[in-house]
Design a binder for these strands. Structure first.
Lengths: 204, 204
DNA sequence: GTCTATATCCAGATAGAC
DNA sequence: GTCTATCTGGATATAGAC
């Protein structure tokens, strides 16, 4: 292996370690030492590769958003009606969360203390909120619905994401600490939410 | 005013300041200095009243849970069927969140990094998860439903709570930074979710 | 590239004057 | 009760040897 290859191997080992610890303890709860321990390196080396904690966190945060937002953005930027897209959206979001269930709390906490990050995120991913909102308002199929389309979408993403944000609670209250039972239930929700959507579109 | 009255006035001023800053920046993101500034005191005085940051945080956290969980617990501990209780639960939870919309992220973040706190919370509030789960399984009305009652409840609390956890996102994406429009929409959700519940109970 | 050693800073917490 | 002054520890980050 060449030196630059070794280099990138170490870099990604650091990123993995950083992600793991940041997800677990949050940005402020994590020290560079924690990450160094996890990556089996000294703090100095982290600084060598990523200069500062802020920079390292920033990369982890962007990677996290990049893990699922681009696919969501592709869907939203397509010319199809939102109603057609919803089933795919549900599938997509739940599958992403099953891979990394800690993402919701991690992202919500960061956005809640630093909402000014949002514009940068849209820019990174080529999303234009104003444009998306405009499209939604002009969407012929949506316009005929008995419900406010925004409420419809809020319902869907709430049901997709919240059960992961509240994982510890659900594990204890509903699934008797049985991880597998919890995961199975989350899988089942993909079908279940599709059904709920159909109901919402019918009801008046 | 007597000295002890002045005392308690200062104490509650500190608690208010602590709550405000903890809600905004999270436990690890806040320093005692931040709280002291907010309360217009020196750090020393905080320590005089509350001994340590951990103790202060603990009180804020318990107060927060106490803000809405006792009412929820009362509902769950009653002998009525969960199906009857759901409408009241929706009303209760959404109203609580409208009062303090930062609660969801604050609580979810803390529970996610310290899930071992949960047993203490049940103890404080006289909730017995095992008992509640048992009651749910023996609930005659629930047993006849076409859906897993746990999924039903997850859907309802997801739709009640998530829109507050994601407030910055919704404000930007759906309500063009119009706080009032956002609040009105959240109010409307009380009715809307009732309707969704009816649909869930009908569909097979 | 990775280490040890060190500089700087800031946080939490306490002692003691008033 | 509230302050100033101080202690101690831990965190980020850099310098410089190997």
């Amino acid at each position: 292996m060449s030196k630059t290859e070794l280099n990138t191997v170490t870099e990604s080992r650091i990123l993995e370690a950083a992600e793991k610890v940041f997800y677990l303890k949050g940005k402020d709860g994590t020290s560079m030492q924690d990450i160094a321990d996890e990556a089996k390196l000294t703090r100095t080396s982290l600084n060598y590769y990523y200069r500062s904690k802020d920079k390292l966190f920033d990369i982890v945060f962007r990677n996290t958003m990049g893990h699922f937002l681009p696919k969501v953005a592709d869907l939203l930027n397509s010319e199809r009606s939102l109603i057609d897209l919803l089933p795919e959206l549900v599938e997509l979001v739940i599958d992403s969360m099953l891979e990394k269930p800690q993402i919701p709390v991690f992202v919500l906490q960061e956005l809640s203390s630093n909402p000014e990050r949002l514009p940068q995120i849209w820019a990174d991913l080529g999303i234009q909120p104003a444009e998306t909102l405009r499209k939604m308002k002009n969407d012929a199929l949506l316009a005929e619905l008995p419900v406010d389309p925004r409420q419809l979408i809020i319902n869907v993403i709430s049901m997709c994401i919240f059960p992961f944000a509240a994982k510890p609670l659900l594990l204890e209250l509903m699934y008797e600490h049985d991880e597998q039972a919890y995961i199975t239930a989350m899988e089942e929700r993909k079908e279940l939410i599709q059904l709920m959507i159909k109901n919402m579109l019918k009801s008046s």
